[in-house]
Design a protein around this nucleic acid. Sequence first.
RNA 1: GCGAAAGUGGCGGAAUUGGGAGACGCGCUGGACUUAGGAUCCAGUCCCGCAAGGGGUGGGGGUUCGACUCCCCCCUUUCGCACCA
Length: 820
Amino acid sequence: MPYNFKEIEAKWLKIWEETGLYKTKENLQKKFYCLEMLPYPSGDIHMGHFRNYTIGDVVSRYKMMQGFDLLHPLGWDAFGLPAEEAAIKHKLNPKDWTLNNISVSRATLKKIGISYDWDKEIITCQPDYYKWNQWIFIKFFEKGLAYRAKALVNWCPKDKTVLANEQVEAGKCWRCGTEVTKKELEQWFFRITAYAERLLADLDKLNGWPENVKTMQRNWIGKSEGVEINFTLEKTGEKLSVFTTRPDTIYGVTFMSMAPEHSLLKSMEMEPKYKKEVESYIGKSVLKSDIERTATIGEKDGVFTGRYAINPLSGEKVALWVADYVLATYGTGIVMGVPAHDQRDFLFAKKYNLPIKIVIQPQGQKLNEKEMSEAYEDEGTMVNSGEFGGLSSSEGIKKVIDFVEKKKLGQKKVNYKLRDWLISRQRYWGTPIPMIDCPKCGIVPVPEKDLPVILPEGDIDYIPKGRSPLEDVKEFIETNCPKCKRKAKRDPDTMDTFVDSSWYHIRYIDNKNSKEIFDKKKVACWMPIDLYIGGITHATGHLLYFRFFTKFLHDMGYLKVDEPVTKLFNHGMVLDAQGEVMSKSKGNVVSPIDVINKVGVDTARLAMLFAAPSDKEMLWTEDGLTGTERFLNRVYRIGESLDKSVVDLKNKFDITTLSDSEAVTYRKLNQTIKKVTEDIEALQFNTAIAAMMEFINVLDGLDRNSPVYTYSAVNLALILAPFAPFMAEKLSEKWGLSKGSVFKAQWPSYDPDALKEEEITYVVQVNGRLRATLEAPVGLQDEELTRLALGSDKVKTYLKDKEIVKTIVVPNKLVNIVVK
RNA sequence: GCGAAAGUGGCGGAAUUGGGAGACGCGCUGGACUUAGGAUCCAGUCCCGCAAGGGGUGGGGGUUCGACUCCCCCCUUUCGCACCA
């Protein structure tokens, strides 16, 4: 019979709640801030959440037993599109829908018994939270880090609506299937690029972050060092600035191309014949989706403007083209075309029969324009390059930059792929942007005393119309200018929800503060986050914004730290038994509630943790429950068979006075304590559980009347506690291991003396293959081990008629006899 | 295309400063206890072979006394970036 988990769970959930076991302490001795990524309440929680939170819960409980004061909060990322979609589809209010999902999810989490301090909960769609989004926004604005600019957004011409990137499927509107186009709107941006260098450089400080996340962030930031060189437009002498990382190829320029969006194109004079073609090309390019413009590598097109540019170094005249492989948003939006040494330029030149000029020769071979089938992009020796001829590429790069700077033809420049963060959303369900547009004073921030700007509720049409639904809510939009008191309008847009999740971890610490965003002193005690657990999907989004906010608040004097997280852990995804992602539409979502009703929380936790390493994706199958269920039943039966313990936990046994089976058990116990401790630290729970299973297999072989048996069982209950908290509480109570809760007991330390072994197994190899093993005292001398090995009958048969070439001994491990 | 990670029994997975491949668990086979067993316990379970023995960590080569582990080439899978001048 399996034990009655329902009864045990109910009992301890109540006790934990009543005694406030997880309440965050005020006076800290040693702190541990354990955090899991803020969930979006889309319904009830699923197995993926369950896995994520169980990882955090194991670590939290382990740290509690090590005497740490814990902060382990959870809240809700409550703004966002799905709430509006539900509102449109089911005629529900986004707020009611969201709050209902939160209460369902919270109830599940409570039932599962994750060690959260629910007093710390935050809900981002509530005014007491988003007020501080608005406050931060104004701080950004005051520092010049929030600004308005025109930006192209996705636009569905049929629905007449702005679409989020996620609502554009293969270039088409998700709702009506119409080809999505671009529309230019005034938008708010956060100037994250001002922090690009620090965000990049400080990655080196993040020793507790996985290398792949850091690499992804480095690539995303995309630092590139080069030089801006000013070409000029023939006849008018207008400046045509280009960015290049390869100034050593400047003599190889045979054409120039500019982005269709480039502002110069609007003012530049062109002969009517060319102007018409250029305009038609621009029109086509703008209609192209991003995918079409960027995904097709190889096919490149453009049109000639009829104008020419002058190369400031060579003085040569080259054709100026418009081509949409040139991005308006990177560098200067104009590119120098060097077909011999850039593959894109090469393809472009081939297509339009533009000249190819070799200016870099590789070592040991000679390129020839007519025979080239692709560009030579590596470094080499500069040729056909005037006074720079004969220099190596690396020298040439330096020399050309020096020359350009001296002659004031341009300057060194660092470019980043990272763009400023567009935060405006033409949506209802988000934080109102706290700005007022006054016809006289311009854009004016809402004074701090008037915050929060409350999101209006009631009869609002959520269906997007290409502008924010708030624009039609008169009571909201119409206001007075804080400066001149005249009639003015509020900003109708709301903020990207990534703003909410960029600083929530700090608000947890002081979530009830109505006077300021948080108390600096309290925050200084708890920050940084010691362990942050979440999915890899946020590597370049949330985790970058979150670092950006931390640095900003640091610069403002609100935070001591300038990085939010010491150790980052990315858990793997949970897939169904067929290896498919669980999703509502597929109908394959497994609810943790169903599982725990069947087998109990502890079994479900163990099965989840045992099935795969926590950082790898796992297939969820109920088959995995059987093994852990049996294991817990065995533990429970040990509990049944042993009465109130009289074991002194501080006691250590002297292994030399124990019987053989006692010594084996005692040694294994201490090895297990060591292994489990190390594995929890490394977040390798599957091997920790395997170690405990191994141990119970050994323990079962020991006489129950031995004091070592009781001692071992008690210690097993303690190291099992973070994994199977209910079972551990049950045993702890029976055996009187601590007052009130097993999580107030001390985490066991292993006895180093017990780990020492006097007899060990030596491996004997002949030509590197295992041929025998020897039981012998630890610390055998090389010669002695060799002598024993050669003396073994088994080994002798392999040495027959062979000549021993040499022997290799690895102390306390093996001897390898090499024969011929 | 570029970058990163990975590939081990029927299955999930252990083991890497180079030293006993397959820990632990599932499943399966046989047995014990049973009126019964989807409970529990015992034994077995990488492959070929009656055995002795041989082979074996995606494939091929290499370094080494010795390679799942290190190096080179190839194949497959997953993820990230996708014209960044």
